[in-house]
Design a binder for these strands. Sequence first.
RNA 1: GUGGAUGUGGCGAAGUGGUUAACGCACCGGAUUGUGGUUCCGGCAUUCGUGGGUUCGAGACCCAUCAUCCACCCCA
Length: 419
Amino acid sequence: MLIQRPKGTSDILPDQVEKWHYIENVLRQICREYGYDEIRTPIFEHTELFQRGVGETTDIVEKEMYTFRDKAERSITLRPEGTASVCRAYAENKLYANPLPVKLYYLGPMFRYEKPQAGRFRQFNQFGIEVFGSTNPAVDAEVITLAMDFYERLGLNGLEVHLNSVGCPKCRPVHKRKLQEFLQPHLDKFCPNCQGRFERNPLRMLDCKNPTCQELSDGAPTTTQCLCDECEEHFAAVKSYLDAVGVRYFVDERLVRGLDYYTKTAFEIMVEEIGAQSAICGGGRYDGLIEEIGGPATPGIGFALGMERIFAALAVQGIDIPLVTRKDVYIAVLGQAAAVEGFRLQAILRKLNLKVETDYLGRGLKAQLKAADRVRARFAVIIGDDELARGVVVVRQMDSGDQVEIGLIDLEDYLLANS
RNA sequence: GUGGAUGUGGCGAAGUGGUUAACGCACCGGAUUGUGGUUCCGGCAUUCGUGGGUUCGAGACCCAUCAUCCACCCCA
């Protein structure tokens, strides 16, 4: 039996990788413009980082982590998301010594032990940004703007920013209490899942997809109704900054986010029809997180977006990524002596930064030209015994079929002049 | 973790119990000597995810198992 890839993973094949490069380039470009620098953190961390950072009551920590013991019996976890690691790196490397705010981005694989389906995998790739050291609502708006700017550059349509404020340690307990008071009388009618959430995280009951639960929680006190003055002001400011740059959003009071660390601003960007999945980006503010994992009290905000879901959305919307893979020269050789000469020419032409290939299968001329056609070469350089003896090569323009005989010493100039 | 669908060559896909498993694409080779993208001809599954069973006979029926896809939960 052939060994297959593990469930929920994928091989990104060469033609597909080209597309990844394209998207990664757009991301890197946009980060440069917005002033974000790349950070690379380990793909695995001490399990405790995620337990403390992501939150013990979250689905991620409760059931989705790839956790194992290493040879020294340390509990290690493959990162299920990026924010906790970046915060850890920020604190551990004392990046707060830099001028604030510190603006970072990352790109790489994440791991969650889930049952795969459309738009969901066990290993998937996220791009994310984090801003540390500012409570300014303008930063919240910048982060959201960056994401939307990016999607726009790819040509994606119909994206919706869903925006909410989940409050802070001051107003959250007030809301939690009011919420519990509201939900208590009907508690027995909620789904088992929600009943479990009642004590630990009643907020999560608000975004339960179960219709009955939705109905029961209809009219429940929302987070935005219970915000303290500071959070209220902050939320209003975020909205006005978004208005100022023309980023449209929907205030979604049921939006809670699955991770515990969020404070104040929480948002998701939705797109239609990636199977049952619709979130293509999620993020928010997490002013207590760095302190939670042992760093200095530092406000932060960021988001993560799913690379695979970008491709899914592009596919659904019929958007093609422009690919330009074309070989400049294919060297067709006939016979051993010509093969050596061709090999030599190949090396020389590559030093001119030309894309060059030659035959390694000992095929006939016909087959070699076919190969040249298939790699979409611009030129075929043909070398046989005759050419070899006379110190010339035949250069064929693949598009037109015109071909000329050229002296070996003139080949470089000819190709450069014509490519 | 729960549920549904599917599993035939590199890919797509016929086959609804009876001798040699359609077809399309891709791939390889040929159509007078060393010339591609069109056309024509030829080649390409001792075998139908795997293991059992029913039957005179199974790719087709039954059971199990694995895998993939989709959905629930939740999210990227």
